[in-house]
Design a protein around this nucleic acid. Sequence first.
DNA 1: GTGAAAGCGCTAACAC
DNA 2: GTGTTAGCGCTTTCAC
Lengths: 341, 341
Amino acid sequence: MGKLERHATIADVAALAGVSVGTASKALNGRGSLREETRMRVREAARQLSFEVNAGARNLHSGRTYTVGMITTDTIGRFSIPVLMGAEDALGAGQMSVFLCDGRDDPIREQYHVKTLLSRRVDGIIVTGRRTQARAPISVGLPVVYAFISSTDPDDCSVVPDETGGARKAVEHLMAIGRTRIAHVTGPEHHHSARVRAQAVADRLAEAGLSVAGPPLFGAWSEIWGRQAVGMLLAGGTSFDAVFCGSDQIARGVADALRAVGRRVPEDVALVGFDNWDVMTRGCQPPLTSVDMNLEGLGRTAAEMLLAAINGTPSPGRHARPCHLVVRESSTVPLGPEARV
Amino acid sequence: MGKLERHATIADVAALAGVSVGTASKALNGRGSLREETRMRVREAARQLSFEVNAGARNLHSGRTYTVGMITTDTIGRFSIPVLMGAEDALGAGQMSVFLCDGRDDPIREQYHVKTLLSRRVDGIIVTGRRTQARAPISVGLPVVYAFISSTDPDDCSVVPDETGGARKAVEHLMAIGRTRIAHVTGPEHHHSARVRAQAVADRLAEAGLSVAGPPLFGAWSEIWGRQAVGMLLAGGTSFDAVFCGSDQIARGVADALRAVGRRVPEDVALVGFDNWDVMTRGCQPPLTSVDMNLEGLGRTAAEMLLAAINGTPSPGRHARPCHLVVRESSTVPLGPEARV
DNA sequence: GTGAAAGCGCTAACAC
DNA sequence: GTGTTAGCGCTTTCAC
C-alpha cells in the first residue's frame, strides 16, 4: 500500500519521448497533426511511466470538470440506492464521475455539501431521497435534476414515478381477475405516497362503479401494521376478496395474518404490494404480485436529462415515469364462485 | 435551473475589494497578517459574488485533492451501503469528498474506474463489496483500504467483521439460556461467510463438549431455504432446541416453518440470525435475536485508517472488528424442563 | 510536424 | 500590511 511515488506529468512523458510538452499533449489527445511515429513514441513513454492525465489541471481550461454531485435529501436507503446506481451507470458511460453526498435529513449538512460541490466545480447536481414528496429546491447556478423526489418549483426538472398510474394498474389487475371487494392498507396518512396511492385506488374503483372495501387503512410502512390491519378488517366485518397494499412489507404482513386465520392467498384473497422489493416479494408466501417503480430507470433518466441540461438542452418540469405491475402467485387465481365467502 | 453565470474567481473578488489577488487569497484562507478591515472587505466581496474557491486550481499546488474514491467490487447492495455511509460520514467530517464507483463484478469496469480515480488524483481508495471473501488487491501507488471485503495480500489494510467471534457469541448465548441441541442452517458452502461461521459454531460447541444438532445445513441465503431446512431437520428426526442461522433471512424462514408445524419460538426452539437486518428482525415473529457486524462502524474505521495512511501513518494488515449480539424475543426464554421434547 | 509561450485559478515566496 | 511574481500541470494558439 502506498508507495507514494509522484504522479508522472506530461513534462516527464515529453522528456522521455524527446519531444516538447505541447507535442506530447497533442499526441495523447489525438489532436493536431503529428507523425504517426512521434505519436507512438509519446504513447509508449506515457505507458512506461503509467501516466494518467491530471484531470484537475485539464479542467482548468475547459471550464468543465466532467463531474456531478449526487445529494440525498435524507439518508441513503432502499429507495435511493437503485436511483443512485442507475444514475452512476448512465453518468459513468458519459465519462462523468460522481461525488456522493449524504444529506441525512439535515439542511445544514446539505448546504455544506452543496458548497463543497460548487467548490469542486461539478457540472451539475442530482438530488434524490427516499420519499417522493416535493422538497424545497436547492438554488445554485447550475443544472439540477431531482430524481424520485421532486422540487416544489414546477419549473425545476424532476423525474418521478407515476404512483397514481401504478396504483391504478394494481386495481385494474385485481378487477381483471374478478375481485370486486378490494381493501386498501397503506402507510401513514401524512406520507405523500400513501395519500396519492389511496386516492388513485378510490378513483379507479369509482370509475368502475365500485368503492374501497372498508375505508382505506392508514398506518405504518411495516409488516406489523399489515398484520394488525387484517385484524381490523376482520373485526370490522369488512367483506373483501382482495387487498392492495401500499408497500410490500405491509402486504407481507397481510399475507401472514391471513394465513394465520385460515384465509387462502390468492384463492380467498388476492394480494398486491407496492415497490417490488425482491426480498419481500420472494419471501412472501405465496410470492407477491407488486408494483415496480423502476427506480434504476428513474436514476438513469435523471442522469441523461442532467447531461442534456449541462450540454445546453434542459428539460424543465415534472416528468412522471410509468410504473409496471409484476404478477406473481399472490394474485394469479381468478376468483371462482366457490371461493366467495 | 442553470443560469450559467461564470463562477467568480479570486481575481474578481480582489478587484471588487480593491486589493491584489495575493491579498485576497490570504484574507480568504486566514493566512499571512492582514488588517482586520481588509480581511472583512475581501470577505464581503466574496460573499457578494458568492465566490467559492476553485478546489481544482488550489489542488494543483498542494498535490492533494482531498478526495477519495470508493469502489464496490460487486454491485452496491445491502452490505455495502452501511459501509459506504459510515465511510462517507467519517470522510466528510475530514473535509474529504467521495467519488462513488460501482464495479458491478466486472474487472474491466473496475479497472476503468481505477484509472479514472487516478486521473482525478484521489488521495486514496476504499474498496468494498457485499461478501467478506478476500479478493485480489488493486495495485496503485496510493493508500488503499479494504472494508468488509479484504485483500488477499495480508500486508494490505483490510477492515473486516470478526465473523467467527460473532458466531461464537450466538452459540454462547444459546447455551446460556440452556440450549444444548443447536442446529445450524446457513448459506451456500462455497460462500466464505457460510464456511467460517459454520466452523466457528462447530468449534465453540466442541469446546463445550457438544456438537451441532444434525450436520450444518448449507443452502442459500434465502427465506425459502430456511423453510426447507426445517423440513429437512424434522424429516431427519434431528432433535433440536435451538437453531442458529447464517442470515436473518434464513432465520425468518425457519421461524415461519416452525410456527407452521406448531413448534413455538422461543419456548420450544430458540432462534438466532446473523446480520441484524432490521427489516427481517422486526418483521419476524417473534422479533429475531441476531448478530450485528456493525457495518457502519467498519466503514468509519476504514475511512479513518485511510486518512491516517494518507497522512503517512498506514495500518497494514487485516483488522477484525468485533460483532455483537442483539437479543430479542426469539431467544429470551430460558429452556424450562417442561419444554423439552 | 514540432516547439515556444501564454494562460486557466490559485497559492506561496519574496519584495516593498 | 500589501503587492508582485513564479509556478502547479495542462491545452492551445501561433511561430518556425
